[in-house]
Design a protein around this nucleic acid. Structure first.
Lengths: 348, 348
DNA sequence: ATGAAAGCGCTAACAA
DNA sequence: TTGTTAGCGCTTTCAT
């Protein structure tokens, strides 16, 4: 079995110093053309590749970013992970994954483990941070980015879609469709996505002097979404909303299932339903769900850019709070978008 | 901003040698009770944690395993990743993710990048290996495990479900249901999962002297699955299969959509359909898909165990080829399981 | 532009 | 059980 090839061996073979080899493999170091080719040849012959860990030790940069994620059953995240991972690879970084799921206990412990790897940055998706975590990361000089979460913490960047605006769009749309009894099924109240989407919806309702007709909490979880749907809809018809906004697609699928399969209601005729995220199954004919699209590509792009900026220039970096607008995608789970009522008509 | 705390600083504060500190943090090293508490206290006060990278350099083990994955749109994988990552965390390892998706070109290049991180093992999910990759990993002493793929390569372990047996179960079931014209929509032919599932189906058909009525290739991809479904079913009724086995759930959803939404066929009355994987949407009422369950938990468990065994005892480790049996889950996309026909009845 | 030398933070002999 | 010493493979001054 071939042993590990070190820079020293390459150096010997090329008849140069070990630091010369290092320079050849360090972008932006000063080496002559001749030296470079000589070394590269020797390296090629031996199959040499620099040891990233050794490099990390002395340079202090591991080119690893930690990615903490939960809720992989929400299909927004697999897509996001894939894109983020690809984008990071293109920048020469790699992603060390940490699941913050049910099984694992404390986020703080996970963060400790992550920091042990001397990672260059930390991206949290759908995870709530404590300020102690932030402090520790800042002490270790590790940039933090919140992905799909917003949290008011000093020095922390966040990339989200504009959930408030998205929620309001949903509200406006349902009102324009003529719905009078609009319900809301909330996600986990600790999540900014949940709060902002609901606030957006409420803003639209308030603007039209309409109350929220019904509200239940699904916590972004399947079982609780089912329960919430039953509580809201397994009631006499006069108490039933004629439209419901569900805080994300993942839950909306289960609500839709309850409506159609369990209660025998017709969608959108008896009840219209709108989700949030536009995950792939939302566009599948079996669900055909009206929803607000989260632009994963853009979110990832902004995340990477934010990270690179902070890494390249930590001194005068100001944390960014990016909120990207996403379109309402109208599908069959609601009535088609009504034409705008003109001022003339409204006055009649 | 607090600087990095090293073992040396802990040592000074505790009034002991630096190697004593190292020992305290090395499981199974010989330290006295007194020493341990003294050091731990000092470490606690300073907030010291060992630098894994430094440890990796000298010990030769990084406690990082590389995980190469593609096809995250197949919802079997997010689940698998989550479970695998959790299980590895419990063993004190962490997962460095590499996407081998469309964007990225060559697997060989990815593997090079991975090896630069001095990882302790490499798990490939749904990725085809070249023997050159295997050789390079073996040269670097990195165990390789194939997850959900089987490939005849010296020294490589593989963990799959028993796809042949699964395919045969599907065949037997459809035949028992009385179907006469059974079609198959294949996955990517380079995948062992595809080949084994099809072989299983064919074994069942052959055993009953039945031909395969129709066959198309969907390559595990959405668009191609749609095309395959149209080619197979958008034909005169007498040329149409009365049952179809689709190589995985991901494609089966699209096939089902074509059947119901595009062609207005009734499932299971006009056509019965069976998938493979039992991903979550298969159990959602909108699809309610009969399928073969892949036992992700077991697969992950076997993967971790295989890895640990090889790491702990590389000398006399023999690669394992694990194929786990999975049950057929009968749902509404097929007729209910018929009671077994008795010999008496058959003779009438 | 190149080489020599010093260390990054840790573990693993080896002594004591 | 503990301390001393030598590196792991690399980058980075500092000379030249």
């Amino acid at each position: 079995m071939s042993e590990k090839i070190t820079a020293l061996q390459v150096a010997r073979r090329a008849g140069v110093s070990q630091s010369a080899v290092s320079r050849v493999f360090t972008p932006g170091a000063s080496v002559s053309e001749k030296m470079a080719t000589k070394v590269r040849e020797a390296a090629e012959e031996l199959g040499y590749r620099p040891n990233i860990l050794a490099r990390a030790m002395v340079s202090g940069r591991s080119r690893i970013v930690g990615f903490v994620v939960a809720y992989l059953d929400n299909y927004f995240y697999p897509e996001a992970i894939e894109k983020l991972s690809n984008a990071m690879q293109e920048e020469g970084y790699h992603v060390l994954m940490f699941m913050a799921s049910q099984t694992t206990g404390n986020i703080d412990d996970i963060v400790s483990e992550i920091l042990d790897y001397q990672i260059d940055g930390l991206i949290f998706a759908s995870v709530a941070l404590s300020s102690s975590i932030v402090e520790r990361c800042q002490a270790s000089n590790v940039p933090i980015i919140l992905f799909n979460r917003r949290q008011d913490l000093e020095g922390v960047s966040s990339i989200t879609s504009d959930n408030f605006s998205g929620g309001r769009k949903v509200g406006e749309f349902l009102i324009n469709c003529g719905h009078q009894r609009i319900g809301y099924i909330a996600g986990w109240e600790g999540a900014s996505t949940q709060r902002d989407r609901e606030a957006g919806l409420m803003a639209a309702l308030t603007a039209h002097d309409m109350p929220l007709f019904a509200r239940e909490v699904g916590n972004f979880r399947k079982e609780e979404a089912l329960t919430a749907a039953r509580a809201m809809f397994d009631v006499p018809a006069n108490l039933r909303p004629d439209a419901v906004f569900v805080a994300n697609d993942h839950m909306a699928f289960f609500v839709l299932d309850v409506l159609r399969s369990e209660l025998g209601l017709s969608v959108p005729d008896d009840v219209a339903i709108v989700g949030y995220d536009d995950v792939p199954p939302a566009s599948w004919p079996a669900y055909d769900l009206t929803t607000v699209r989260q632009r994963a590509n853009l979110m990832v792009q902004e995340t990477v850019e934010t990270f690179i900026r902070q890494i390249d220039n930590p001194e005068n970096f100001t944390p960014r709070q990016v909120a990207l607008d996403g379109p309402l995608i109208v599908r069959g789970s609601t009535q088609p978008m009504p034409r705008k009522v003109t001022a003339h008509e409204r006055l009649r």
